[in-house]
């Protein structure tokens, strides 16, 4: 087993443990901290894929911005009494069993899939990614900018609606 393989298994185990921590955490703030840890572990996974770019973006955007945003939201919301009511009417056991069934299906499909037998190749250079982003996907890039504007406008009007005349 090469060093890269060892790193992959280590980071994979770490990210799964942290992910389980998210759903198991009793308090929301703990869940957000577990989420942060998962993001960092995933940045490590991206390093085993040879993609420093993705690892960096993962740390900055998910590890930094999104987690901090979630913590802010947590601080700003009143302590919410977490009632024993759930999004789905199914009991956690039924939900857990169906998700496990789904996982088993996904894993068997993945293991059988011949198109996923390829090993890791060198990741494309950042320059190539940039060329795609501002060439083929330039319209998508612009739309992503528009989406950020929509989110900004939406966040402001949603958050401030009672102050305006």
């Amino acid at each position: 087993m090469s060093a890269r393989d060892v790193l992959f298994y280590a980071y994979a185990a770490l990210s799964i443990v942290c992910a389980v921590g998210i759903v198991r955490a009793r308090r929301l703030v703990h869940a957000v901290v577990w989420l942060f840890a998962t993001m960092v572990a995933l940045a490590g996974i991206y390093l085993t894929l040879g993609s420093e770019l993705m690892a960096g973006v993962q740390l900055f955007v998910y590890g930094g911005a999104v987690t901090v945003l979630a913590l802010f939201a947590l601080v700003l919301t009143r302590p919410v009494p977490e009632l024993p009511a759930r999004l789905s009417s199914a009991s956690p056991w039924v939900a857990g069993a169906s998700v496990l069934l789904l996982l088993a299906t996904l894993i068997t499909t993945t293991v059988d899939a011949t198109e996923l037998r390829a090993g890791v190749r060198p990741a494309p250079s950042t320059a190539l990614v940039a060329a795609e982003l501002f060439g083929r996907y330039v319209v998508l890039f612009e739309v992503a900018g528009l989406l950020l504007t929509v989110a900004l406008v939406g966040a402001i009007i949603v958050a401030r609606k009672d102050d305006a005349s």
Partner: peptide, 23 residues
Amino acid sequence: ITAAHYTVLASGLFCIGLFGVLN
């Protein structure tokens, strides 16, 4: 390590997230 390894890991994370949503 192949693409399948990563997909299994991703499936695990996805299903944990899905359970989190349902629960």
